[in-house]
Design a protein around this nucleic acid. Structure first.
Length: 543
RNA sequence: GGCCUUGUGGUCAAGCGGUUAAGACGGCGCCCUCUCACGGCGCAAUCCCGGGUUCGAUUCCCGGCAAGGUCACCA
């Protein structure tokens, strides 16, 4: 068979030879040990926590080693394309501190562009043509029906499904048959002519999983689809070679196709990059657990976390906690360090899939938020509010001086102990709501109506905005005593039957009357912030 | 079903031949306290199962079992 002629018929025209591309995309000039990693999403625009998990690993591995992180778009499947998707992905990741050095829509060094696979079509064809010329790839005219029938037969016979060995019908087509099909205008794909033997197994070192057992590939996989666009496998080999990726970090669902990739790199004459297959973030689904999915877990979309107002650093801390088992310990010792100083290692990545734990994230969020100054918190809330806040919430930012006082109180700034009430921005806004809006609803009072009125009226009679906290509280005690409540907690505990309740019950009445709730930070300070008129008005309304 | 991967408390996990089997989250209890939050103290809860190897296995070997992944002209 004249492969040269066949190649020309299949992919007519002049294509550059491999040397041209090797020169066009030269090896990167980076320090020793620097990793080049990449994120290569398909442009569906949807991106969830699992993607961030993976992206964080890519980003850390690249930047901890003085290397490069780039963004490549795998748009070889037209059915998946969504407009504006790339921008959406970049924006979502940027919020969580994932910054690309180069890539689609990024700018930066254009040496390795283009970053969209559809724009690299010529290169893929050039290498496919070369493979055909070498007799290592061939046209296949099998239809979808043919393949379905084949699969059915193999399944019935309990054989491995796929296009391989004796089942690879088109592999053995004669020259005459091929040209006959071509003349008849039959559509075709280009398949790899695999030389592997599945009997052969060997060890392969995975940067995350350690040594894994790999079986030689014998599948004649499609490398060029009938529309001339490469499959993932083929594009992966060519792109990661010419973009000079050193470390391919991807989900473990790719481990099964590693043999294909190894053969492809080999047949193309490219050195193999190193690989790290990470486990997927799992979600409990009834009795079992499964990896995060786009269709089933919309609530795990990155957008959800932005909308709820999770603090970016908190999410990053959680990702690092899951990603590197020694991170948590390091962070405990270096609570104020730049997260990027943590020595991130692929080998420290977990080998088993972790369940996503919202409780843990929330705990981290509280801690991170509590470290902010009131000014930083105000800035964070304002930024969140501008995009996701209601109109009434946006109004909180008009009186900045008041907002800062509120935040100082609610965060315990200046005190020996910081408060940790806020998990997210949206929750914080709910928490501080009563400072800016009169409570529409009040939690139930636990004293009788008569006592409530007496307590509130007694307070109004005594309240003086100029009192300091001690004087203020002594007045609350007076009211307690006056109405049959114990002024001192010790007295109440010693003899609970003698009283209707204690100062705490009296304070609770005042608290509910002014804020609508039974649980708040220091009431005295709240009244100071609200001001005399507002405090009195709220209490009067509850008498 | 074949192949690959994984199996330490409810969750994330350290440990890698001898440990009272770390720590964090969550749960529960107590203390602090005008409530809440914070903080402090404490409690419950774990080595998938069965065989070996060994004086001794959570750690090593073999076999089960379970879970996850994968078997496309999708990535």
């Amino acid at each position: 068979m004249n492969y040269k002629l066949l190649a020309e018929r299949l992919l007519p025209g002049e294509y550059p030879d491999p040397a041209f591309y090797e020169e066009k995309y030269p090896a990167r000039d980076l320090p020793k040990g620097a990793e080049v990693t990449r994120l290569a999403p398909s442009p569906t625009g949807f991106i969830h926590l699992g993607n961030l998990f993976s992206a964080t690993a890519d980003e850390r591995l690249a930047h901890c080693s003085g290397g490069v992180l780039y963004l490549r778009i795998e748009d070889t499947d037209l059915k998946r394309k969504v407009d504006g998707a790339v921008e959406a992905v970049i924006k979502a990741l940027k919020y969580f501190d994932i910054k690309f050095d180069e890539g689609a829509q990024i700018g930066g060094d254009e040496t390795y562009a283009p970053w969209y696979q559809r724009q690299r079509a010529e290169m893929y064809r050039a290498f496919a043509k070369k493979l055909i010329e070498e007799g290592r790839a061939y046209p296949c005219f099998c239809t979808e029906e043919d393949l379905a029938a084949l699969r059915e037969e193999q399944t019935k016979n309990k054989e491995i499904t796929g296009y391989y060995g004796k089942y690879a019908k088109c592999r053995d087509l004669t020259e005459e048959e091929i040209y006959k099909n071509l003349d008849a205008g039959k559509p075709f794909v280009i398949r790899l002519k695999s030389l592997g033997n599945p009997e052969n197994k060997f060890k392969f070192h995975d940067e995350i999983k350690g040594d894994v057992t790999v079986t030689e590939n014998d599948q004649d996989v499609v490398i060029l689809k009938s529309d001339g666009i490469p499959t993932y496998h083929f594009a992966h080999a060519i792109d990661d070679h010419f973009m000079r990726t050193t470390l391919v970090i991807r989900g473990e669902e790719w481990l099964a196709s590693l043999p294909i990739h190894i053969e492809l790199f080999h047949v193309l004459g490219f050195p193999l990059p190193r690989y790290g297959h990470h486990c997927s973030l799992m979600k409990q689904d009834g009795e079992t657990r499964r990896k995060l999915s786009k269709r089933k877990d919309p609530e795990l979309a990155l957008e959800f976390y932005r909308k709820e107002g999770y603090f970016p650093r908190a999410v990053k801390v959680y990702m690092l906690t899951l990603l590197n088992s020694n991170f948590e310990e390091w962070y405990l010792k270096n609570p104020d360090a730049d997260l990027n100083e943590f020595p991130f290692k692929a080998a420290k990545m977990s080998r088993s899939g972790a369940l996503f734990d919202l409780d843990k994230l929330n705990d981290i969020s509280k801690n991170e938020l509590s470290k902010l100054s009131e000014g930083e918190m105000a800035a964070f809330l304002e930024k969140w509010g501008a995009e996701f806040g209601t109109e009434s919430q946006k109004a909180y930012f008009a009186d900045e001086e008041k907002l800062l006082r509120v935040l100082t109180l609610c965060m315990g700034v200046g005190g020996k102990k910081r408060r940790k009430d806020f998990t997210t921005a949206s929750q914080a806004m709910q928490f501080i709501k009563f400072f800016f809006e009169r409570p529409a609803e009040h939690e139930a009072y636990r004293v009788t109506d008569g006592d409530r009125r007496a307590i509130l009226a007694g307070f109004l009679r005594r309240y003086d905005e100029m009192d300091d906290a001690q004087v203020w509280f002594s007045k609350v005690k007076e009211i307690a005593a006056e109405n049959g409540f114990a002024a001192e907690m010790k007295d109440y505990k010693a003899n609970p039957e003698a009283y209707k309740g204690s100062v705490s019950d009296v304070a609770e009445v005042l608290r509910i009357a002014t804020t609508g709730r039974a649980n708040t930070p220091d009431l005295y300070t709240i009244m100071q912030i609200l001001g005399d008129a507002e405090t009195r008005a709220r209490i009067q309304a509850e008498i």
